[in-house]
Design a protein around this nucleic acid. Structure first.
Length: 255
DNA sequence: CTCCTATCCTGCGAGC
DNA sequence: TGCTCGCAGGATAGGA
């Protein structure tokens, strides 16, 4: 989706006022007439910057933004942003697990205030990661999915990173050695880098900006492979529930 | 404070 | 075939 140079917001068309939670429609309507100065990302949130605040958007698991031509409306289009140049941006989200919110100019927001480092940025450091894990007895899988530890590690990539690091997801965070932590740190970065290069994981609705499917789902080594042979040792991949989420691991390779 | 659970929402696939 | 049920995902409220 190509945006015109700093497109001007003409109006919002909320086809329903809520996604996972309510949309602050009045606050967002105050942005009418403003230009979209940039579109940025923090953790899994998109931020549309204007001179009077930000539109915050989270895609949930099935959300997408696209340019919507006349007649191009689809079921589950929840919000349209009409631009002054006549074009329209549409947010579509069949499962309505996404978020839309307003963030004031100072950038403070309950969604953003407690976020840890970006996993691919320099601010994600082994030392801090180590001390963070050392401070919790929670399972390491739970800890790395906590956005206060590091953002961006969802359920799929948590299992995959732990497999590559040879660490069992149930290990307590404070039980990891320094070298195990360094390995995990490296594999989190590696898995996310590779997944991004492959265009992400299209397991249900997720597609790239141009509509193409991601390819990383073909490279899962444990995720959603319960009972299948581990590619390294031939043992069976196991599934357990942690924090209400499925975790996949190889009991022989991961200790 | 930390940690855990339930909840939000809808579509889909498995099993009967 | 048509139905029910459980699960998927990230974030967060609320209770222990």
């Amino acid at each position: 989706m190509m945006l015109a140079e700093k497109p001007q917001i003409e109006d919002f068309d909320f086809r329903r006022p809520d996604l996972r939670g309510p949309i602050p429609v009045d606050r967002l309507r105050e942005l009418r007439g403003e230009r979209i100065l940039s579109v940025r990302r923090r953790a899994k949130f998109l931020l549309f910057e204007t001179a009077r605040g930000f539109i915050l958007s989270h895609l949930g698991m099935t959300g997408s933004w696209r340019e919507v031509s006349e007649g191009g409306e689809r079921a589950h289009d929840h919000v349209y942003i009409r631009l002054a140049d006549g074009r329209r941006l549409g947010f579509r989200d069949p499962r309505r697990f996404g978020v839309m919110d307003f963030v004031p100019l100072d950038g403070t927001s309950p969604h953003l205030d407690q976020l840890g480092p970006e996993p691919l940025g320099e601010e994600f450091e082994v030392d801090e990661f180590f001390s963070r894990l050392r401070s919790t007895a929670r399972a390491v899988k739970i800890a790395i999915m906590d956005p206060r530890t590091v953002v961006g590690v969802g359920n799929i990539y948590a299992s995959e990173a732990l497999f590559r690091a040879r660490i069992r997801p149930s290990r307590p965070g404070n039980g990891l050695s320094r070298s195990e932590t360094a390995r995990l740190h490296r594999e989190i970065r590696a898995i996310l880098t590779e997944a991004i290069e492959a265009g992400g994981s299209s397991i249900s609705d997720y597609v790239q900006a141009d509509g193409a499917n991601g390819r990383f789902q073909d490279r899962f080594r444990v995720y959603d492979r319960e009972g299948e042979p581990c590619g390294l040792c031939g043992g069976r991949v196991r599934r357990v529930i942690q924090g209400g989420r499925s975790s996949f691991f190889c009991p022989r390779c991961q200790r």
